[in-house]
Design a protein around this nucleic acid. Structure first.
Lengths: 246, 246
DNA sequence: ACACGTTCTACCATTGAACGGAAGCTGATG
DNA sequence: CATCAGCTTCCGTTCAATGGTAGAACGTGT
């Protein structure tokens, strides 16, 4: 647009405004939003006002900016993972009831597993917080289960990330993890948040034989019984896959 | 911006593109999107491409447009109802376990109750579908519970809707429903979808004595036992309210 | 009570980004 | 092979977006 010092489009700016909210932050002051998005205050103000007129943002008294309920509604009604989550929920509830463990469902986005649904272990504090959370592929069982069943091309492209020896993790190690996950039909990995827990995940394969999601559980080390967990997960994953159209 | 035949801003158009998705539809063809949003094809195409470069939309091969995973992620991480849902989930699970009924949580948005969370009755098919659903205030127990505890000004403004005698529902009837809900401390109403079910909802009041949500259940007529349901809901609602900051 | 700092909001002349018709491209269909 | 329908790109025209500046509202320290 005219006079754009930074040479970005309106769309760029709208995106930057929405992305300016730090994870888990629901409310931001206008001036802070302007700072975080790198926009002049007056521009940020104008954009926020326009967006809030449509309900995508909510500009409260005193310059408090929140995401709008309308935006939440639109996204949750038309979410690309809607069909997946609907198909998966009954099976996830079964797993939760039978195994009594934390169950989660993830999809691949870039080089990360994006968790799209989660049921907490009964009795434990429900942590909805981690929904919409991300984990790098190579340090999450869900990520490994997803990547292990992608095309060779994508896997190769992914592994290039580890080509430079600057990181601790080498391409060889990751390649081995993927190979193991592919061969076994499930992925297991020590918990990242809590070292006394283990993650186990299996691929969810749709009718076109594409791996579209990973179904996983997080279990305390003491309750780690692969013989019981893996078949249950695989059965549920097949059930979910059968429900999915494409 | 320049040459806008319809005299709308870029922001307007972005909103129209996002809103063009009909409820429950996750995928749209570009040409259909252009139609629905009332934009020239080339303009729609440009906007969609820009938005998908940022991950807010997903422009697939063949002109298939979906909402982007990134958008879903951003909205769910920073949702204005995040704190509410987190505070409410444990109590909702308690209700679900103890009463074994469908539990839901709604907030007021305009003259409608917007359902932000839902737990299904055990054994029944999980219907995530209805999450992010809306119901007019006067035909939902949640809506009545919410409106009954709003300020006089807002209630008066709301009741003006029914001033003209064109609709079946008169202002008097609605006023009576609200008064009853306010006096009783809970709202009950015959189910809309299924006439053999009843909805019961109680207000969730935060530490500043503002009614910010409604907690409700949907029960089959045969299991309608107010003596058991209402106290349980009220107890849970108080628990939720205590967890909420503002 | 006054001065100062901070933050939100409004204004308006400049200017380059957005617009959209038209042409090109691609793939499916008869 | 011709036709069609839908997606994509191009490019000259135009006016909507921009952001510095100023004012209003509020809080805070002196």
């Amino acid at each position: 647009m005219a006079n754009s010092a930074s040479g970005d489009s309106v769309v760029d700016r709208v995106v930057r405004v929405i992305e300016a909210f730090p994870e888990g932050t629901t409310s931001l002051q206008l001036s802070e939003l302007a700072d975080r998005s790198g926009l002049p205050l007056s521009s940020a103000h104008r954009l926020v006002r326009q967006l809030s007129e449509h309900g995508l943002l909510d500009l409260g008294a005193g310059g408090t900016v929140r995401l709008g309920l309308r935006l939440w509604e639109l996204v949750n009604r038309n979410s690309p993972t809607l069909a997946l989550r609907q198909a998966a929920m009954p099976f996830m509830e079964d797993i939760q009831q039978v195994l009594n463990q934390n169950v989660n469902l993830a999809v691949l986005d870039g080089w990360e597993a994006l968790f799209v649904e989660r049921l907490s272990r009964r009795g434990s504090v429900a942590n909805r917080a981690r929904i919409a959370g991300r984990m790098p592929v190579h340090i999450s069982s869900a990520g490994l289960a997803l990547m292990a069943h992608q095309s060779r091309e994508l896997q190769a492209e992914y592994l290039e990330q580890f080509a430079d020896s600057s990181g601790k993790v080498t391409a060889g190690v990751v390649r081995h993890l993927l190979a193991e996950a592919a061969q076994q039909g499930y992925a297991q990995l020590a918990g990242v948040v809590d070292p006394d827990t283990w993650g186990i995940a299996v691929p969810v394969i749709n009718s076109k034989r594409r791996t579209v999601a990973a179904l996983g559980v997080v279990v305390p080390l003491a309750e780690m019984r692969l013989q019981a967990l893996v078949p249950a997960l695989q059965t549920a994953a097949r059930g979910i896959g059968r429900q999915l159209g494409d």
